[in-house]
Design a protein around this nucleic acid. Structure first.
Length: 437
DNA sequence: TCTGGGGTCCTAGGACCC
DNA sequence: TCTGGGGTCCTAGGACCC
């Protein structure tokens, strides 16, 4: 038996935790640059504000209905997430943290009744100890438990916990008939369109489709989804998170950038971010890729999407080496006369730090043992200083003084706007919640 | 003026090898 | 006159997830 525990409107719930005056009011969390909507309270959903909607298109709705807007505060969300997961883990032998707001459990040797009791308790404990509301779906496969979760979330009458029992044939059929095929986990916009064009509207109809046809049109992945809907488990619990295969740092700029020097500062900073992530994963990268993008939404502007990659001189996690390769690529792909809106730095061909293969000609390249040891020490010091004193306390020259007078990103066109970010209540001493009596 | 960011997996097709 | 076939590796592109 599987279950999936999903936090309701997670980012919004995190914000409400520290500012309860926004309960019962429409609340929205925006993406970086306050670009589009990435989390909505039920009240905001009721105003027909879609997920992913560009904020500027809904300005009137926001004003008219007094919608509270937040810039994203991922530091806060990450910390609250780990508290939620911590509570859940007390109940489970096997648990898979699927995303920042979601976890799967695998349950053996419990009856349905016992499972329902346990999950109601999980729901109460998470609400009481962390303050976040969750919905829970239970069934015999992961895909069915996600479907049950949809039902739990959208029907108050089930008290946040719902179970799909494939043995109760008529109910099972009813549940899957009520579920639109596009709402099935694993069926996105494209496949939903394809299926609808073949007269398949509901999850139940999809589960009755011909295997050969599914395999041919939706690959093995689609076939597994169909089988899971029929009650055959094809997707196991992944308790150990597999090592990352790539690390990306990609951000839109606050304002369009046309100058090479500014692009290089941005790419240096993104590379620094990616390298930090790389080290925290205990991995090294063999290749790096840099892409630049003009604003795809502005069709009147000339468009240009160059990108190129480079093999590193031996796998590394040393920020200066990564920056220097990234900047070589920028020099190569940059063309004057375009308004760039976004840059992407991607590290891949990753492997564990302790599996670095030394260079064949160690004197000529940067990965002989001595250099590696020295570089490791340097990065360790930089990381711990930045952890202790805030990011960008130690910067690399090519970033172009991102932090000045304690302010990060000031006067940098490419730096992102985050004007409505709440405080990092749980991770910064100087941003602790103040209670005034 | 203003449209997110970070991931995974699968497949087809080309290059290359023997 | 007849000009293979099996296998691997790599990459780009497309689908999906939250």
């Amino acid at each position: 038996m599987f279950s999936v525990i999903d936090c309701n409107s997670f980012y919004v719930s995190c914000e409400r935790l520290f500012q309860p005056r926004y309960e019962n009011r429409p609340v929205v969390v925006l993406s970086n640059n306050d670009g589009c909507v990435i989390s909505r309270s039920n009240e905001a959903k009721a105003l027909q504000i879609p997920m992913g909607a560009p904020a500027f298109k809904y300005e009137n709705v926001f004003k008219q209905h007094n919608v509270k807007l937040f810039s994203p505060n991922f530091t806060l969300y990450g910390d609250i997430s780990s508290r939620v997961m911590n509570v859940i883990s007390r109940y489970a032998d096997g648990m898979e943290i699927y995303s920042i707001d979601e976890a799967f459990l695998f349950l053996e040797g419990v009856t349905l009744e016992q499972s329902l009791i346990m999950h109601r308790e999980i729901r109460e404990r998470v609400k009481k100890e962390v303050g976040i509301p969750v919905s829970i779906g239970i069934s015999s496969t992961k895909t069915l438990s996600k479907a049950a979760n949809e039902i739990a979330k959208n029907n108050d009458k089930y008290g946040g916990v719902y179970n799909i029992d494939i043995k109760n044939v008529s109910q099972y059929r009813q549940d899957l008939t009520n579920l639109k095929v596009g709402d099935v986990w694993g069926i996105g916009r494209r496949y939903a369109e394809l299926l609808r064009s073949h007269g398949v509207e509901t999850a139940y109809q999809f589960s009755k489709c011909d295997d050969e046809w599914i395999r041919k049109n939706m690959s093995i992945v689609g076939l597994k989804t169909a089988q899971e809907l029929r009650g055959t488990s094809c997707l196991d619990l992944e308790e150990v998170r597999p090592a990352k295969q790539s690390i990306i740092s990609s951000k839109s700029f606050g304002k369009p950038v046309s100058e090479l020097t500014e692009l290089k500062e941005a790419v240096s900073t993104f590379t620094t971010r990616a390298a930090e992530k790389l080290r925290s994963e205990g991995e090294v990268a063999g290749q790096i890729r840099v892409s630049l993008l003009t604003n795809i939404h502005k069709s009147s502007d000339p468009q240009y999407f160059p990108s190129s990659s480079a093999q590193l001189m031996g796998p590394t996690d040393f920020t200066p080496d990564l920056i220097s390769e990234a900047l070589k690529i920028v020099n190569k792909i940059y063309r004057k006369g375009y308004l760039y809106k976004k840059a992407i730095v991607q590290l891949y061909d990753l492997r564990a730090q302790d599996k670095i293969q030394l260079g064949l000609f160690p004197k000529n390249v940067n990965n002989n043992e001595k250099t590696i040891a020295k570089n490791k020490k340097i990065m360790k010091s930089v990381d711990s200083l930045n952890n202790e004193w805030g990011s960008e306390t130690v910067q690399f020259g090519s970033q172009g003084l991102v932090k000045q007078a304690g302010k990060v990103g000031k006067n940098k066109k490419w730096f992102q706007r985050r004007s409505m970010r709440s405080d990092r209540y749980t991770t910064r001493w100087n941003e602790l919640l103040k209670v005034i009596c």
